[in-house]
Every structure is written in structure tokens, then in C-alpha cells.
Design a protein around this nucleic acid. Structure first.
Lengths: 127, 127
DNA sequence: GCAAGTGTACTAGTCGTATAATACAGTCAA
DNA sequence: TTGACTGTATTATACGACTAGTACACTTGC
């Protein structure tokens, strides 16, 4: 059963999108594996203190991306392959790198300073 | 007159917030300076193809943060001090670094790989 | 003075996010 | 079989972001 203990939603970003990212990043990290069972929609909504429909929307999108399969009456499970994980990794990394470099460049930060900033503050951030 | 030539709004983030970020990052980079004149609300809304009220909201928030001053009938101008710029720089950098390190850690990326990724893809991203 | 441009304010409507409540259909274990 | 749990679907409501249109007060340049 996939754990959502480390899921801490942030204000300003749709919760259903944060659920998508949480699952995808876990798949890339290897903490979420092929076949893993997800909490039921009702269970997860109660656990996170959000509406069942918000969870349903996230799960529906995960299904559209073929990352989970759901069975009436039974639950939902991850469907991951090496290829899918590789795709996810490239997609998520590209977005992150593009975002941070664009932001730092707009502030006039050069590459050396960017690397120094990341290097300096790496340990201070919790995953 | 502050130029918005390099302003390219992204889907999914409120436009008025992106205008705030654009101004703040320009101030940190030094391309936007104390006293610089901003386009009028009507002018900027026409230029960006967005609603005047959206621009008004962004300008109103900039005023709340004492980054611009507006005069009835005349326009709006930047009000920047060395201290304000320093504050902005620390605030924006902290947010960016926190965000990227948290995201990479959730994907199981370690510090060395993170630095290597940034170093490798730095040139590919346009500011 | 006058007209154009400016900041400011207000109301109304659309759209997406999230909530709330309910209903129906299928699985599974006792 | 039955009951509890599951996935799925529908309708209604609330709120914020954004659009649309309008109005008023003020400054500036002619």
C-alpha cells in the first residue's frame, strides 16, 4: 500500500496536481513500484482531509496517463514499466531544470553562482 | 520605460502573479531600477493582450509591497532601495532553491547528480 | 479651457478548483 | 447471501482568477 505520510500539499497549486506529482516522483525515486496498491479514494480523501472528488480527479488523470489501473469494487494499482519510469524521469527533470535555470537567469545569476547556491543549501531542505 | 518584451506568461499560474515576479526579478537583476517608469495599465494590458483589471491587480499588489508608486493622471514608477533589492534577492532565491531541491530529493536525486544536471543544461534554457 | 491619457473603482459574467451530498454498480470476505 | 468496501457518476454550491464594460477623478500637453 502506497504511503502518503510524506505528502504535504502546498497552497496555490491544485491539490489533484500535487497528488499526480507525488505519485510520479515516487515512481522515479523507486519508492513506488509496479503493482503497488493505492489507498481507496474515500480512504485517501479522509487521510488528507480533502474532498473525495478531488482525489477522484487525480486518480482519473493518473488513469488517463496509464500510470494506474482501477477495478470496480477492488482498488487501484500502479502499472509501471522501465520505459514509463524513464519517460517520467526525463519529463519531470526537464521541467524542474528548465524552471530553475530560467528563474535564476532572470535574476541575473550566472552558472557558477547558481551551482554554488544549490550546493550551499542542499542539506537545509527536507524532501 | 520598463520593457515587457521578455515577458512570456505561462499557463497555470495567475498572470498578475507572473507580472509581480517579472518586476521583482528585474529589480534583482538590475535591469529595472529605482525611478523607472512603468507602462500605463491600459497600455500594458493592450500590449500583453490581457484584461486591464488583471494589470491593475498586479500594480495594486506592487504598491502594497512599496515597490511602485502611482500618481492620479500621471503614471507609476519604481521605488527601489538597496535594502529592498537585497530583501527581494534573498526572498526569491530562497523560494527557488527550496523548491528545486525539494523536488529533486523527492525523485531520489542526490546532490552530485543535481549539480551535474544544472551544469549540463544551463545553456539550453533561455532567460 | 480642452482633449487625451492616466489611476482608480465598481458590477456582472465565465471558468476552473474544491467542496458537499447522493446514487449506482461491482468485489470480497464473513 | 449479506454487508462493507470499492470505483464511478451526477448535481449543486462556493470561491478565486480572469474577462468585460463602465464610470469618475486627476494630470498633462495643446
Amino acid at each position: 500500500m502506497i504511503s502518503f505520510d510524506t505528502f504535504h500539499p502546498v497552497d496555490g497549486v491544485p491539490i489533484y496536481q500535487q497528488i499526480l506529482l507525488f505519485i510520479k516522483r515516487g515512481a522515479v525515486a523507486g519508492t513506488i513500484r509496479d503493482g503497488d496498491e493505492l489507498p481507496s479514494r474515500r480512504m485517501l480523501s479522509a487521510l488528507l482531509g480533502i474532498n473525495p472528488n478531488t482525489v477522484q480527479k487525480a486518480f482519473h488523470l493518473l488513469e488517463d496517463e496509464n500510470l494506474i489501473t482501477s477495478q470496480m469494487g477492488a482498488g487501484s494499482n500502479m502499472t509501471l514499466s522501465e520505459d514509463k519510469i524513464r519517460e517520467l524521469r526525463e519529463e519531470l527533470l526537464a521541467d524542474d531544470i528548465r524552471s530553475i535555470t530560467a528563474s535564476l537567469k532572470q535574476m541575473g545569476i550566472d552558472k557558477a553562482e547558481a551551482l554554488r547556491l544549490i550546493e550551499r543549501n542542499w542539506e537545509d531542505t527536507e524532501a
